[in-house]
Deep mutational scan, measured.
Amino acid sequence: MMAYMNPGPHYSVNALALSGPSVDLMHQAVPYPSAPRKQRRERTTFTRSQLEELEALFAKTQYPDVYAREEVALKINLPESRVQVWFKNRRAKCRQQRQQQKQQQQPPGGQAKARPAKRKAGTSPRPSTDVCPDPLGISDSYSPPLPGPSGSPTTAVATVSIWSPASESPLPEAQRAGLVASGPSLTSAPYAMTYAPASAFCSSPSAYGSPSSYFSGLDPYLSPMVPQLGGPALSPLSGPSVGPSLAQSPTSLSGQSYGAYSPVDSLEFKDPTGTWKFTYNPMDPLDYKDQSAWKFQIL
């Protein structure tokens, strides 16, 4: 009977010793046993002879290597770790002494450095960015050149030099007046198309007034536009458009034309069986010896 009264063996659950049927240790109110408190290391007290050895090595170098620390530790009968900690504390003490010396050398008012006064946003004049500046400075420094007289040679050079070769001289006033084509001369031969040399188009003023001019072949195509416009036809070669000034309004060009419109200028042929003959000019830059190549039959 006494065997049943004795408590059973101890069981360990999660490293906790349980005594038989008792489960009081598993209750929430019972805390787990805490780790033992780490003991504080005792402070090391250095003797005068030990301090002399350490100070002598510190005077040589503030960062001794492990071999120098072990050698000193053997002399003063201390572990190497204590020597390492002593050098660490000695360097910190040396830095603190240097900072105190710097503070003593500075004057009393030198510690508080005078800061520059901050400028207020409204006091300083700042350039306004509302208006974009002129990058080319046209509004201040540029002045347009004065327009020359209508009959000045410089204007003629600016007008005619675009179309004339570089080897030719500017046309005088008398020749510029001949550039304007007359109405009857352009409409006299509506079906004849003559190819003149390129030099005649640039230099010869008579080429624009003769039936064999460069633009005589364009007349049949330009004249039928007159009834559609409801007024006189516009002429690209009329009046002052080739003269001194090219800047004319469309209203000033509306009254200039080749001449009176005639039914002869239409595109319809009077004789459907007729042929169109292209007159060959020996001055043509295209060297075609066979003139029969310039004739064709309209079917």
Score class of each variant (00 low, 15 high):
A3L: 13
Y4R: 03
Y4V: 06
Y4H: 01
P7Y: 13
G8E: 00
H10N: 00
Y11N: 01
S12Y: 15
V13W: 11
A15S: 04
D24L: 14
L25K: 05
M26T: 08
Q28I: 14
V30D: 02
V30N: 07
V30F: 09
P31F: 15
S34F: 09
R37D: 12
R43Q: 11
R43V: 15
T45V: 07
T45W: 15
T47H: 09
T47E: 14
S49P: 08
Q50H: 07
L54T: 13
L57K: 11
F58C: 13
A59R: 10
K60L: 12
K60D: 10
Q62K: 08
Q62T: 10
Y63T: 13
D65G: 12
V66Q: 12
V66S: 05
A68S: 00
E71T: 08
L78G: 14
P79M: 10
E80N: 06
E80G: 07
E80A: 09
V83E: 14
V85N: 13
V85D: 12
W86N: 14
F87L: 13
F87T: 14
K88Q: 12
K88A: 15
R90T: 15
R90Q: 13
R90C: 14
R90G: 13
K93A: 14
R98S: 06
Q99N: 04
Q99A: 04
Q99P: 11
P107Q: 07
R115F: 01
R115Y: 00
A121M: 03
R126I: 04
S128G: 07
T129M: 02
P133Y: 05
D134N: 08
G137H: 07
I138H: 10
S139K: 05
D140W: 10
P149G: 03
P149L: 10
S152N: 08
T154D: 05
T155D: 02
V157P: 00
V160Q: 00
I162P: 00
S164L: 14
A166Q: 00
E168W: 15
L171I: 06
A174V: 11
R176L: 10
A181N: 02
T187C: 11
T187M: 10
M193P: 00
T194N: 05
T194F: 13
P197L: 09
S199I: 15
C202F: 13
S204P: 05
S204R: 11
S206M: 10
S206A: 06
S206P: 07
P211Y: 10
P211C: 09
Y214P: 01
Y214R: 07
F215C: 01
G217V: 13
G217S: 04
L222S: 00
L222H: 01
P224I: 13
M225H: 02
V226L: 08
V226F: 14
L229C: 03
G239K: 08
V242C: 02
G243D: 03
G243T: 03
P244V: 10
S245I: 14
L246M: 04
L246S: 02
A247H: 08
A247D: 05
Q248V: 12
P250D: 03
S252N: 06
S254I: 12
Y258R: 07
A260P: 05
P263A: 13
D265C: 15
E268P: 04
K270E: 12
D290E: 05
D290F: 15
S292H: 09
K295C: 12
K295M: 14
F296S: 00
L299I: 15
